[in-house]
Amino acid sequence: MGVSIRRPLLPLLLFLFPLLYSVSVLHQRWNPEETKRLSPKKPDQVILGPAAGQGLPNRLQCQGTKAMNRIEPSPKNNHSEEEKVSFVTVFAIYKSDPMSEKMLDRVRVGDILYNSKSERSLAILNAYINFIQVSMPSSDVVVLTDNDSTFSLDRNNAIKFPIEGDYSRSNLMLQRIKSYIAYLKRILESSELEKANKNIIFSDSDIAVVDNLGDIFQKHPDFHIALTFRNNKNQPLNSGFIAVRGTRDGISKSKDFLEEVLDVYMSKYMGASRMLGDQLALYWVIKLHLPSAIQKFNRHESFAGKVKGVSVLFLPCAIYNWTPPEGAGQFHGMPLDVKIVHFKGSRKRLMLEAWNFYKSTFNVSNMLCLILCSGRTKYDF
């Protein structure tokens, strides 16, 4: 006996019709542009959260933006007694589509409104110089850039140093190593080398130096080149900070070391992401010539080793290349002896906020609490 299936369809259609009608009306009324306009705008300010590392020994303790256990670095009464250091960074401003610039939200930090990426990039470079001037007033800054760069540096302690090359975004990490090597060669050829005897720190320009780094050269008198390491299986070496002793031997051997890194980069890692090639090449050279170093990357202590006659010092990233977490509440917090804060990616905005806060308080410790407690802010910087 056949079973009729027509009778149950009527109640089903009566049930579905109102639902289908509502969806149709909603689709007609929905306007994606209007929805985008009504969506909440990202706050144009620093969002504070809980301080990471609360209660942990040797970590900065904060109540809001007030440091509870940080001791201010003692100022040097005689700047001539400081280690002479030249901070060297690679910097380029990229041309952008005027139409895309108009679509970007303007960013205000303190009393300053930044309307374009180029303005913000130059502001970050100036903040980099400002932090160095506060923490190490006897030091100078050398900005390696392309021959056609048009930005100006009206600073007493900073100069542009043009070096020919390809400074495009996709080639920047490769060019950075080439520029470092070219700069070291120029110094070796200079008749002023022996007289100057100035140590060198190659660094990214999105860092804040918050303590005197001259003690690296005083506490570790035997190294030629210093690298920073972290407990990261694939990229344990960070190329954003490289220290070179300013003697002829130190500069010459550091140049030789970087030339080998460059050769490895060009032969093995040209297909790597534009931000990874140099770090992968650094690791390959160390793994090849000094495999005993690898097992020490999970510790938090400095150590040294030899790479083809070059004395290499390894410094813990947590102190010499500390990066703010993407959001407040990271468990480990900020070491009390941190010397560099590295504002990567979307955190570059925070670097300008930190300098603006320092200008109003002149308190490094409280500024570090502002950095530590700042919540995640995503800006196209």
Rank of each mutant, 00 (worst) to 15 (best):
Y180M: 15
I242H: 03
D337A: 11
E101N: 02
Y167W: 15
N234D: 13
F257M: 04
N31A: 06
A52G: 15
S203F: 10
Q295W: 01
G271A: 14
Q61N: 05
L56A: 05
P32V: 05
A67Q: 10
L113M: 13
M68C: 11
P73K: 06
D337G: 03
F343E: 12
T65E: 08
L368P: 08
S252P: 01
I294E: 07
I71T: 14
T89N: 09
V141A: 11
S360D: 08
L290R: 00
R176K: 15
L282M: 14
L276C: 01
I371Q: 06
Y265C: 01
K178Y: 10
G2Q: 09
N231H: 15
V341K: 07
L258A: 07
C62Y: 14
A208D: 05
I294D: 03
L336D: 08
N58E: 10
I132Q: 11
C317L: 11
T228L: 12
I163K: 08
P11Y: 04
M270F: 02
E34P: 01
L372Y: 03
G165E: 14
K308T: 07
A51C: 13
L174N: 14
W284H: 14
A318R: 04
F151T: 01
G271H: 10
D337V: 07
M173N: 14
G53I: 01
I112G: 03
S191P: 04
N212T: 02
E353K: 12
G309W: 07
L48N: 10
L315M: 14
I319T: 09
V264E: 04
A318L: 05
I129E: 05
K160E: 03
L282P: 13
M103K: 13
D215L: 13
Q133A: 09
V141W: 06
A182C: 05
K378P: 00
F381R: 00
N77E: 12
S116Y: 05
V312Q: 02
Y180K: 12
I371N: 08
I112E: 12
M136K: 09
S267G: 12
S273G: 14
A281P: 03
S239Q: 04
L280E: 05
G246M: 02
W30I: 13
P236K: 11
S4A: 13
N130T: 04
G64V: 06
L26I: 13
D278K: 00
G329V: 12
E194D: 10
A123R: 02
N232I: 12
L290N: 11
L16G: 00
I340R: 05
D211R: 15
